[in-house]
């Protein structure tokens, strides 16, 4: 890695001013993505701003209809937090399936969603659970947040501070993990929202997380795994790489979706 100045601010305002002051500065969260990237010299920041000591980015707040989680909350905190396990079990399950124990001990919710890797798990929860992504400047709806391959609505010096997920009536997330990294080759979150609508968010398959709207409509008419194959699925831009062909990913999306629906029918509490 190139060398850099290291800053460890204790407030959000300080982090913001450092980020604005240094042209080639980068925020540092769990670094599970940032350091591998820097080691390959795909990023060569002059300044790194460590978000690890900012209190405002921590914490989990359970509300009536939603659960708000600080950006610096690690995957292992999400997986094992009693309140999340109780109030938003689908998110705990999703977090438990990320990478490995050490990746989960360091990697963060905010880092994952800022990075928006096409194969990352959290984007499926953000889009599937109608989340609001809160930054130091504004609130962004998940439906406006994910813009493309590794692209989000975040501006250059915008800091993601927390994510508020809507508590669904029930939800399940099932992925086909890459056997080496556990990133999603295809991952599907199926949720029944408080108003009874069905959301199906798909990660891993395309350049960016998306909602499979035809499957959603079909499931709204009849919530059963049997109907998933008959619904349309736009796979025109599906990823085709060394891990899986686009055709295989299409099959995987349908299969993961069926498994999620089956799980919800077996375990109504999801």
């Amino acid at each position: 890695m190139n060398n850099f100045n290291y800053h460890s601010p204790s407030t959000l305002a300080e982090a913001k001013s450092l980020l604005s002051k240094h042209e080639d500065a980068k925020l540092l969260a769990g670094v599970m993505t940032l350091f591998p990237t820097m080691k390959m010299r795909l990023a060569t920041p002059t300044d790194l701003i460590d978000l690890g000591h900012i209190e405002a980015l921590q914490g989990i707040a359970i509300e009536n209809l939603s659960v708000e989680i600080g950006a610096m909350t690690t995957h292992s905190q999400v997986a094992s937090n009693d309140q999340i396990v109780e109030e938003l079990p689908v998110l705990a399950t999703l977090a438990r399936g990320i990478g490995d124990a050490q990746v989960r001990n360091r990697g963060t919710l905010g880092g994952s969603l800022s990075n928006s890797d096409p194969a990352a798990d959290y984007p499926a929860a953000a889009l599937g659970l109608d989340a609001v992504l809160r930054t130091d400047q504004r609130d962004i709806l998940a439906s406006d947040y994910f813009c493309g391959l590794f692209e989000t609505a975040l501006e250059e010096t915008e800091i993601l501070t927390a994510v508020r997920f809507i508590k669904p009536k029930r939800a399940a997330y099932v992925k086909f993990p890459n056997p080496a990294s556990r990133y999603a080759v295809a991952g599907v979150l199926v949720a029944e929202m408080p108003d009874g609508s069905i959301r199906v968010a798909v990660t891993g398959a395309a350049p960016c997380v998306f909602r499979a709207s035809a499957i959603e409509q079909t499931l709204e008419k009849q919530f059963s795994p049997g109907v998933v194959d008959s619904a349309g699925l736009d796979d025109s831009d599906f990823n085709d790489d060394v891990f899986a062909s686009a055709v295989y990913r299409t099959q995987l999306v349908r299969e993961m979706c069926k498994r999620a629906v089956t799980q919800l029918l077996d375990e109504p509490k999801g």
Binding site: V31, M32, F35, P36, D100, A101, Q102, V103, N105, R106
Partner: peptide, 27 residues
């Protein structure tokens, strides 16, 4: 591996296992 994947470098920092190739000494 030096790329956060193999776990040969795992140590505990404040009681939690971490890959020490993916954390700075100053952290």
């Amino acid at each position: 591996c030096d790329t956060s994947q193999c776990g040969a470098c795992v140590v505990h920092v404040n009681g939690k296992s971490v890959k020490s190739c993916t954390i700075l000494a100053i952290q």
